[in-house]
Design a protein around this nucleic acid. Sequence first.
DNA 1: TCAAAAGTGTTCAGCATACACCCATGG
DNA 2: CCATGGGTGTATGCTGAACACTTTTGA
Lengths: 259, 259
Amino acid sequence: MSPYDPSAFPPFAVTVDLVVLTVRRHALCALVVRRGEAPFQGRWALPGGFVRDDEDLGAAAARELVEETGLCVHDPGALPPAPGKGAHLEQLATYGDPRRDPRMRVVSVAHLALAPDLPAPRAGGDANSARWAPVEELLHEGEPAGEAPAGEDRPEPLAFDHAQILADGVERARSKIEYSSLATAFCPPEFTVGELRRVYEAVWGVVLDPRNFHRKVTGTPGFLVPAGGTTTRQGGRPAQLFRAGGATLLNPPMLRPEV
Amino acid sequence: MSPYDPSAFPPFAVTVDLVVLTVRRHALCALVVRRGEAPFQGRWALPGGFVRDDEDLGAAAARELVEETGLCVHDPGALPPAPGKGAHLEQLATYGDPRRDPRMRVVSVAHLALAPDLPAPRAGGDANSARWAPVEELLHEGEPAGEAPAGEDRPEPLAFDHAQILADGVERARSKIEYSSLATAFCPPEFTVGELRRVYEAVWGVVLDPRNFHRKVTGTPGFLVPAGGTTTRQGGRPAQLFRAGGATLLNPPMLRPEV
DNA sequence: TCAAAAGTGTTCAGCATACACCCATGG
DNA sequence: CCATGGGTGTATGCTGAACACTTTTGA
């Protein structure tokens, strides 16, 4: 019964699972990978893996993120933001129901990553084993009951409790862009006010007034800093380019319109 | 290398640690227990323990809470609030640095509990092994550097990484009472507007305008429901008694004054 | 009568909203 | 010339901050 006795406590497997979100074609998308083995073989799941013996939880999540997407993690303190493609990474929640994995007792420390739009997912070179899927499709959002169109099959639900983890991650992202500058993590290093607005619109699923949005974000000190150039990639009048400023907390917050 | 092979992943011990907060004598206090064994023998620590083999994380935290305080957990869905003394309990974050426990690899899933003022802590009947300590004292808040008075010793720091866990829990509580009705978890079943205001003042360490606070909380639908009686336990004009209403989200939020 | 706490009414400033309007580009 | 998106100005309404004032008890 000494505290050093390994038989005094039950052994657990500890994993990290990743909710990696991005905005593609005006839709909030999550990275999912195809499971190659039982249980849930062939089903889509969140990327993840075992935490190594000498590894911190955040380091394990960052390692999995690099392995799955090639993204490096923004160190919040380090400036300039990152040499390569960077992403935001934070711990989300921990899931430990005794029956969440039929094989053994697994506790999963879920992490949330926000990434700019990437060319294509890579998962060991196999293009068919990883994809960006709209979260609306993965979570069947906006389908009260049996509202599925006759012709379309409902997609298979995610493996394990990953639908719950994904829902929690999406909810966290939706609420956190209200009062923080986190939405810039969905944008490339330089972006326009309109691009940032389309991020908010995609994540929240709403339409925002472009004029008031512009005044709000440019009027909040430290949120955006001018990058110097302009671009016309959206058509219309050229737009100023900005970089994310140092401010992380938005006060007053960006208000999410009623649903 | 089969997924069923227990040697394919390193075994972890999984614990729950509790940040139990209450408001006593106008100060935010946390429950700490004296460690009876190495490491950190004799030092104060957050209450906690191993998760059992067949137990969910939230259930383990609720069990520890009952063992340490006798408090039952409010089921958010169940009404009336609770038969006995109830408390709010939610998952906080997970701490898994490889060196956080010198004995072995321990991952701790910290939980945050908010409780009304209790007569006295009980920990196995030993009155000297558990106490409510002001968080300001435990975290040395507001002491820039070497500002400690000559006569007073700085209290011993908490064991393990519990100072960080406590700081995270306090920060969570401080921000969450802004936009939720969670502050009522610090109050007895029936309470006055003034008592609720003193909770906000203690948790935030600020002074609020009693008149505007009164209008704010009584004007938010679903936040407070009249309980019928009045009390004069604070002196002065008798105050109406209220119970916590069903609303959990405050919109617009209670604004925390600048520091 | 006074102190103390509970409530109510009123004014003012800041910010979100809505929308009219102008600017600069591509086709 | 027109469509498209970028950006500015302005009126309106809501709400939080500040504070004068009344109410109701105990000492």
